[in-house]
């Protein structure tokens, strides 16, 4: 258009109104009414709402379930710790039972002994190789160390006091002759003391016997 105007610039003064008029005539545009297609608002709004709500609720649920599983993980971890501790305790108890010393102790309790040498039974022909007479000679193996010897300090020599002559006889005489209550009471007390001493001695002896038994067990 601009090139058209510029080339025909000389004839502009007289021709222009006519041409322009025709152009205007040709170019007259009428306003067309806008055909507005109104989309329904409701589905869109509800879609957005659903998406938003769904997102929020989903996120919430997801978060909750994550949190839930975190709790579960913690409690399961704790349980695993407890169980592995228990497993370890049981394993160490088992190891204690498998200790060769423990096995030997139980075997000896059943009367088993370690033989001097092995014997071999040939399953094919039923012959026994080895020195059968002497191989069976078992020996009881002492499983525990000997108890340390009792230090002599614990058994001091008994102190023997010889009373001056006559003193013992006098007391006896007094005791048998006197009839008053005071002396009787004293005698009773003496008797009590003697009884106490006896019982003490007995218990000592018992404990000694027990010790002897223990020693024998250890032998």
């Amino acid at each position: 258009m601009s090139s058209l105007y510029s080339t025909q610039g000389a004839a502009r003064s007289n021709r222009m109104p006519r041409i322009a008029g025709a152009a205007v005539e040709r170019a007259r545009l009428s306003v067309v009414p806008v055909a507005r297609t109104r989309a329904a608002k409701v589905p869109f709004v509800s879609l957005v709402t659903v998406l938003l709500l769904g997102g929020v609720v989903g996120l919430l649920l997801f978060n909750t379930s994550m949190q839930q599983s975190a709790f579960a993980a913690t409690s399961l971890e704790q349980r695993a710790t407890v169980l592995s501790a228990r497993q370890e305790a049981l394993a160490s108890k088992l190891e204690r039972l498998r200790d060769p010393q423990e096995i030997a102790r139980r075997a000896q309790k059943m009367g088993m002994q370690v033989p001097a040498a092995p014997l071999f039974l040939d399953l094919a022909d039923g012959t026994v190789s080895g020195d059968a007479a002497r191989a069976t000679l078992g020996a009881r193996l002492p499983l525990d160390p000997l108890l340390p010897a009792r230090p002599s300090e614990l058994d001091p020599p008994a102190t023997v006091v010889t009373p001056p002559e006559g003193v013992l006889g006098d007391q006896r005489g007094g005791g048998s002759g006197g009839g008053d209550g005071g002396k009787n009471k004293q005698d009773e007390k003496k008797a009590d003391k003697k009884a106490e001493k006896k019982s003490e001695k007995k218990s000592e002896k018992k404990s000694e016997k027990k010790k002897d038994k223990k020693n024998k067990k250890n032998d």
Binding site: P115, A116, A117, P118, F120, S129, G130
Partner: peptide
């Protein structure tokens, strides 16, 4: 020596050579 060796022979099932 006899006890320990006898035990080892038994444990590892070594038969007498004969």
């Amino acid at each position: 020596f006899a006890k320990i060796t006898g035990y080892a022979l038994r444990r590892y099932a070594v038969p007498p050579t004969g």
